[in-house]
Amino acid sequence: MKASIGWITGAAAAALVAAGAITYAVAEDGGGSAPGTPAAGSADAGFARDMAVHHQQAVEMSYIVRDRTKDPEVRRLAYDIAQTQANQRGMLLGWLDLWGLPKVSAGPPMSWMGMGGMPERGDGSLMPGMATDTEMRKLGTLDGRQAEIFYLQLMTDHHKGGIHMAEGCVAKCAVGTEKRLARGMVNAQQSEIALMADLLKERGAQARS
């Protein structure tokens, strides 16, 4: 059964409404100057830093495709992803502020997951699922159905990488509020992957992996 864009939109709106409460709740759940404040090298801090970078690319990718297609379904999905991930990115960076921690890691991405030794993809792709600079430029040159298909393929890969990272936080993070946000990311992005598979099928295409 095809996933509902309307349902996705409603979920995104609910996430935005809850954002303020979640941001401030984390201050009572290991944030601020309390003894439970995460360390700079903790999974909590690492996830916040890395997912903020990961989300930023998803926002950029989504706004690119909104300018390259007139298809209402893809435009609505892209808008929902951009708004939700921009909001979550703000929360993650806000938590780092509350914890008094740097927003840029001194070590390699995803080292908090035990993946610091993973091979470099290069070309702007810092973490699994992220598009390369070349792929981002290509997206900006496509129009219509070609842009839709390439965006859906890139975003499917992006979500798979994001889910892997969020699952890492669910397993390793200590701050309950952050773990709950990560669990919500997993559920929402799995639903969006299913929706994108349907949209790709309608266009005679499929995910790249």
Rank of each mutant, 00 (worst) to 15 (best):
M1N: 05
K2A: 14
S4I: 12
I5M: 14
G6Y: 01
W7E: 12
W7V: 15
A12H: 05
A14P: 00
A18G: 06
G20A: 11
G20H: 08
A21F: 08
A21G: 09
A21M: 09
A21I: 12
I22H: 01
I22E: 04
T23Q: 10
T23V: 13
A27R: 12
G31K: 06
S33P: 00
A34S: 14
G36Y: 01
P38A: 07
S42R: 09
S42M: 02
A43P: 07
F47N: 03
F47L: 11
D50R: 08
M51G: 03
A52L: 09
V53N: 07
H55M: 07
Q57K: 11
A58M: 11
A58K: 07
A58T: 06
V59W: 07
M61T: 00
Y63T: 13
D67K: 11
R68M: 04
T69F: 08
T69K: 06
P72S: 06
E73F: 03
R76S: 11
R76C: 02
Y79L: 05
Q85I: 10
A86I: 01
A86G: 01
N87R: 11
G90V: 13
L93W: 06
D97C: 05
L98F: 10
W99H: 06
L101R: 13
L101K: 10
S105T: 01
A106T: 15
P109D: 06
S111L: 10
S111W: 10
M113Y: 09
G114V: 07
G114E: 14
M115D: 10
M115T: 00
M115E: 14
P119Y: 05
E120Y: 08
G122A: 04
G124A: 09
S125I: 02
G129M: 14
G129K: 05
G129C: 15
M130P: 03
M130E: 05
T132V: 04
T132N: 04
D133P: 02
D133S: 14
D133G: 09
G140N: 14
T141G: 12
T141I: 03
Y151R: 12
Q153T: 12
Q153G: 09
D157K: 15
H158T: 10
H159L: 15
K160H: 10
G161S: 15
G162A: 15
I163N: 02
M165V: 15
E167G: 00
E167Y: 06
C169E: 08
V170K: 00
K172I: 06
G176V: 02
T177L: 08
E178N: 12
E178V: 14
K179G: 02
R183F: 01
G184D: 01
G184P: 08
V186F: 05
A188I: 00
E192L: 04
L195A: 03
L195E: 02
M196F: 00
A197G: 08
D198H: 15
L200P: 01
K201M: 10
Q206G: 11
R208V: 15
